[in-house]
């Protein structure tokens, strides 16, 4: 694992420890893709976080917000110390799920928390971009479990009908629906809904970068979907083996153990 990906994971662990909350398995499964988007793909920087033509990152699976803050910190939007000092506190702007209204200087693009909302919201942004002739692209990170919500499929129909090929749906496919219902073949389903679909190893940042570049360059009128095959808790042996880390914050002792595991991964 690249050092930056280890550092991001340790930042997430520390933030979770500070606020004593978080869904770390989900954070670790998507962190590599989120970093790749901000570091290699998106037209975005801290200096142009409110630029009207910037690319948008919409976090639909809000339980992974602790993956977003460390990436924005590394990209220079806020300092780690600031976030660590305030996260989850009464008057803080750093909620465990994002709150757009507290970030007038940009960085957070939507409010998360209820699943099935970010995807249609992203479709609306992409549709507006088309109406406004903006080059802005929209990347929306969803969970595989989120596709149990009807609004996800409704917005897929709309995105396809409106030919929103600057929209990229990313599914963090960490097999959470394996514990729920059988969703069948998502690649076939999304293809049938009019999307160009790619399936990648969501922990291989080189493959992710290449795939995003290729798929977004294809302006064929079809919205894009990247199914990132991931592992819950990837980066920590303990977290991949014990689902209690679906929703658990580390105490001081666990923090030390998990950081050590990340270093040795």
């Amino acid at each position: 694992m690249k050092q930056i990906l280890k550092d991001l994971r340790k930042d997430s662990l520390l933030l979770s420890h500070k606020c004593q909350d978080g869904n770390l398995q989900s954070v670790f499964s998507c962190l590599d893709v989120v970093w790749t988007l901000y570091d290699k793909i998106m037209n975005w920087s801290a200096e142009k976080a409110t630029d009207p033509d910037r690319d948008f990152f919409i976090i639909s699976k809000g339980q992974a917000t602790l993956a977003l803050y460390p990436v924005l910190i590394r990209k220079g939007l806020f300092s780690f110390d600031e976030v660590a000092e305030h996260i989850g506190q009464f008057d803080s702007r750093y909620c465990i799920q994002t709150d757009l209204s507290k970030f007038p200087e940009g960085g957070v693009e939507n409010n998360a928390g209820s699943l099935g909302h970010g995807m249609p919201f992203a479709v609306g942004i992409a549709n507006a971009n088309k109406i406004k002739n903006s080059p802005s692209r929209v990347f929306v990170l969803c969970g595989d479990g989120e596709f149990c919500e009807g609004t996800m499929w409704e917005s897929c129909i709309f995105a396809s009908a409106k030919k929103l090929d600057d929209l990229c749906l990313i599914i963090d496919d960490n097999n959470s629906v394996g514990a729920m219902v059988d969703m069948g073949d998502m690649q076939k389903k999304l293809d049938a809904f009019g999307f160009d679909v790619a399936v990648i190893n969501g922990h291989d940042t080189d493959e992710a970068e290449e795939t995003f570049r290729t798929i977004m360059d294809n302006h064929n009128g079809r919205p894009k979907a990247v199914i990132a095959k991931t592992v819950r808790g990837y980066g920590s042996k303990t977290m991949t083996e014990h689902d209690i880390w679906f929703h658990k914050a580390p105490n001081a002792e666990e923090l030390e153990l998990l950081c050590k595991e990340v270093d040795e991964f």
Binding site: N110, F121, V123, G124, I125, N129, K132, S134, T151, E154
Partner: peptide, 18 residues
Amino acid sequence: IYEDGMFSIAAGMARRGL
């Protein structure tokens, strides 16, 4: 016949100033 997701889509469009 599409109300709930449509509201989210409309919200996204409002986010872009429409």
